[in-house]
């Protein structure tokens, strides 16, 4: 396959960026999208040019490091991560636009790499359970009803990639935050912090400058892990409940 790529190039956080056009040839339809970019980078290095910076790690769809808005879609046209997207989703002669996640809370570091540490700070605000460390607890000590376990697993699938923020017209992190809150709030292990968790994580989410939710549903459409839109309603319910329960002061 022969492709025309229009890639966002930006030297560093403070520099102005722009789309640059590149031609790549000899792309196999079995290549992943990232392998296609590796091919481009090898050529750029041979020509003595700066390779395109992009995030990646596991390349197995489990770590959440890869990103890229491809032709306007976060993680491209298939419901999967960019690393698991294959070039058979494109046709010979296509022009492909590649841009970084766009959100005030995710500043560009270089080219296609953005700083997602705002997500880490949301997790630090309450995305944990307080448990005694040391020896593993007896597995049967805390029974979890099957539907609750399924619900927790469904939300634990979130890999923190940020596609939801990238796809949302408001740059909102509600889907991510709801996945993390719902995952822990449904479990007995998460019960001691049930109220503070949702209040603090939503508080941190707002403090990071993410937008609010207008329920357009773009996040859930983009999410490679299928975190569903009703998760946001479930988190709102937890937030309202916590507001009633917790004394302020």
């Amino acid at each position: 396959m022969k492709l025309t790529l229009r890639v966002w190039r930006q030297r560093n956080a403070d520099a102005d960026g722009a789309m640059s056009t590149y031609e790549v040839d000899g792309i196999s339809s079995d290549m992943s999208f990232l392998e296609m970019l590796d091919t481009l980078n090898e050529e750029l290095i041979l020509r003595g040019e700066d390779p395109v910076a992009f995030d990646h790690d596991c390349r197995e769809g489990i770590c959440g490091a890869c990103s890229l808005v491809i032709n306007g879609d976060a993680h491209g046209p298939e419901r999967t991560t960019t690393c698991q997207l294959h070039m058979r989703s494109f046709r010979d002669g296509d022009t492909i636009d590649i841009e970084p996640w766009r959100a005030a809370a995710f500043p560009v570091v270089k080219d296609l790499v953005v700083d997602r540490s705002a997500f880490d700070r949301i997790i630090q605000a309450g995305g944990y359970v307080s448990a005694p460390t040391g020896s593993a607890p007896e597995a049967h000590a805390t029974p979890v009803p099957k539907p609750d376990a399924d619900y927790a697993f469904e939300h634990a699938e979130c890999i923190g990639c940020g596609a939801c923020v990238a796809a949302c017209p408001n740059g909102s992190a509600m889907l991510f935050t709801s996945a993390k809150v719902n995952h822990l709030n449904v479990l007995p292990q998460g019960a001691p912090e049930r109220e503070t968790r949702v209040l603090d994580m939503v508080g941190q989410m707002d403090a990071e400058g993410f937008g609010g939710c207008t329920l357009t549903g773009e996040c859930a459409t983009a999410c490679p892990k299928g975190i569903p839109l009703p998760s946001i309603a479930a988190m709102n319910k937890e937030w309202l409940r916590a507001n009633r329960k917790v004394s302020r002061g």
């Binding site: 229009r6 966002w8 789309m19 808005v69 032709n71 306007g72 636009d97 841009e99 766009r102 959100a103 005030a104 809370a105 949302c168 017209p169 408001n170 740059g171 909102s172 400058g209 993410f210 937008g211 609010g212 207008t214």
Partner: peptide
């Protein structure tokens, strides 16, 4: 707030 949270628009 929502408009400020997405200061740079996508080209595509």
């Amino acid at each position: 707030r929502d408009i400020n949270a997405r200061p740079t628009k996508y080209v595509h």
